[in-house]
Design a protein around this nucleic acid. Sequence first.
DNA 1: CTGAATCCAAATTGATACTG
DNA 2: CAGTATCAATTTGGATTCAG
Lengths: 134, 134
Amino acid sequence: MNRATGAVKGKRVVMVCGVPMDMANCPVRDVMDNIGGKWNSLMILSLADGPLRFSELRRLIPDISQRMLTQTLRDLQRDGYLSRTVYPTQPPSVEYALTDLGRSFLVPLKLFVDWSLQNHDAIRKARAEYDAVA
Amino acid sequence: MNRATGAVKGKRVVMVCGVPMDMANCPVRDVMDNIGGKWNSLMILSLADGPLRFSELRRLIPDISQRMLTQTLRDLQRDGYLSRTVYPTQPPSVEYALTDLGRSFLVPLKLFVDWSLQNHDAIRKARAEYDAVA
DNA sequence: CTGAATCCAAATTGATACTG
DNA sequence: CAGTATCAATTTGGATTCAG
């Protein structure tokens, strides 16, 4: 064991903000691994105003492939962010809607969106300066 | 052009919350592409309490490879989240510290961390139920 | 309409060895 | 100490085809 960090080799323990975190079972990483995906948070934002059908989401996000739309929706449903309702019409229609959990996630998500909009220029500037040196 | 969405094929325009977003130049995605990485936000949290040296970060996060530590730090520096200071000692030591931008990002980041800790159980439960059906 | 299945290209990451 | 360079393994994403 590493006395300085409390880390045990093979146990993937990390110290962050003075708190030991088991990286193999870290809640933050567990959440981020899902919503950090390429389309996941955009999908949640797209459903913020109300339920949408599969084909509506496809039109709303024109550049997502069918494969990724299906997979993203399934991943988000699996973690409880949204519900999937099948209406037995012919042909069938499927509606996706945020759950309470999904709606509660809109709070930190929107704060992140706001921060991004406010600081995007600063980031682009920093990036340009960094690249100029190199 | 798609009249329903305002999307122009090949222009990657997406409607979200009623606002058209150019996916090819979306501020939110631009920010997330960097801090959404596997180690990036953990790195920012690790530096929240003060500057750390390269080797200190390595000890703090035992399961990151040297390659990813270097790359993560460089990416975050490039976007202006942290500064890199070289002390010309022998052997050299390099100190990494959050910038004002990096510290300001701690606000939405910590809100996300809190949300994750509070809702992790609900997510695990939803996941278990989903898997049980399948 | 709403997917599932398959194949393949590209991007990410890890392991290892080497350097000023 | 603080990296760089290289290669292999894994993951991810897109395109296409098929199906209930």
